[in-house]
Simulated scan of single mutants.
Amino acid sequence: MTTLVTGATGFVGSAVARALAVRGHDLRLLVRTTSDRRNLAGLDAEVVIGDLTDPDSLVRAASGCRYVLHVAADYRVWVPDPAAMLRANVDGAVAMVRAAAQAGAERIVHCSSVAALGQIGDGSVADEATPTNEADFVGVYKRSKYLAEKAVLELAGRDQLPVVVVNPAAPVGPRDIKPTPTGKMIRDAAAGRMPAYLDTGLNIVHVDDVAEGHVLALERGRLGERYVLGGENMLLKDVLALVADVVHRRPPSIRLPEAAVWPVALVMEKLATLTGIAPMMTRDHLKMARKKMFYSSAKATAELGYQARPARLAVQDAVAWFRANGMLAR
């Protein structure tokens, strides 16, 4: 029962690989030559070299696999070359699904994101059925995830492929080696480097619950369906207060109006263009913050048996891991 996982050196992918290993899957992991392999430590798996921009390598990786879970993606809010992200996230997803189908995979799980779903934005809770408007997808990452999911579902519907889609919210927890944008926020807040906040909100979920959701979708998901894998809907102010409480710091008390931050974001973007160093704040950050990304996992709970632990546990595990790995002072 060989199961291919893409993105297993990454944050979510490594958690998915571990959840599959617990269930006895024989793992094959797609890895780029340049990937940091620390997250593979302790995993009994076959490692194959490939890249989302190299379709032939995906065909070789999927050959002989009964199941394929496509978790790999370029997850950044700011990128110097948007076209490269679109190639990896959109073209790469389609190529991976085609390769899995060519290999005769019985089940294919495509990891999308709540970023690909419709938003209500006013604090109301959205779900898989919330209408989408392509113009609402601010930034190349959100647009790439929307286009990838759309293309994968269209391909699956046209060719009758055994695809299930999962839409994780904002994962938090151990093995966030880069870290991801959400993980960086948690780490910076824990270090006392976020004295202020914007009026926005997000859904915080433990990365291991997201991984379990992938496996449940593989085992029980209905073909052609999407499943939100979320945790707690929280205002950013409350997320930062939770982090502060975990590390015994004072929570930030300054709420920043968007207009005050806009010029700073513009300057940071220009500096990033010159230096190649990702900015802490961009105009896309501010545009996205206008809508609260609150989502319901009720469908995954009802159909998959999905459950999520409290956000506090996710934050505690993330902080402990950052400290243990020298990314956050004790």
Rank of each mutant, 00 (worst) to 15 (best):
H285V: 09
R222F: 09
D74T: 14
P179I: 00
G305D: 08
S112H: 08
E219F: 01
I49D: 15
I49H: 14
P279M: 02
D208M: 08
V138G: 04
G104K: 06
L271D: 14
D81F: 14
A62N: 05
G104A: 00
I177V: 15
P310F: 11
I177R: 14
E106Y: 09
V165N: 05
Y197M: 09
A300F: 06
L266T: 12
A265F: 06
D208V: 05
P171R: 06
V172H: 05
V247I: 10
M194V: 15
V243I: 11
G64S: 09
T9V: 13
D284K: 06
K292H: 10
A196C: 13
R323P: 03
T6A: 07
T2H: 14
T200P: 01
L153K: 08
R107Y: 10
V16S: 02
A311Y: 04
H285I: 12
V264T: 11
N167F: 00
H206G: 11
V90C: 07
M288R: 14
R220Q: 13
D176H: 07
A211H: 02
W78Y: 09
E106M: 01
A151Q: 10
R37C: 11
T275I: 06
D122A: 10
M194E: 10
V247K: 09
A95W: 00
K237Y: 07
D238S: 13
A217F: 00
L155R: 06
A93F: 07
E46M: 12
N133D: 15
P310S: 09
K270Y: 14
V261W: 05
K287T: 11
A190W: 07
A289P: 11
R255W: 12
A318Y: 00
L69V: 09
R76L: 14
F294I: 10
V77Q: 13
V261Q: 10
G230F: 03
A298N: 08
G92M: 00
Q119L: 15
G7H: 05
G121L: 07
G213Y: 00
A45Q: 09
V210S: 00
I204K: 04
V267P: 02
H285P: 05
E225Q: 15
G118I: 03
R226Y: 03
A135D: 13
M194I: 14
L69M: 12
V205G: 01
D26L: 11
S113R: 02
L286S: 04
A189S: 13
M194F: 11
D159N: 07
V210Y: 02
R175F: 13
D26I: 09
L266W: 15
A105E: 09
E232F: 06
V205S: 02
Y146S: 00
G92I: 00
M288P: 07
N89I: 02
H70M: 01
M85Y: 04
D208P: 03
T180W: 03
W262K: 11
R158T: 15
S63W: 06
D26A: 15
S124Y: 11
P171D: 09
V165C: 12
A308D: 04
M288V: 14
V109N: 03
R249K: 11
A196R: 11
R323M: 14
E212N: 07
R220N: 08
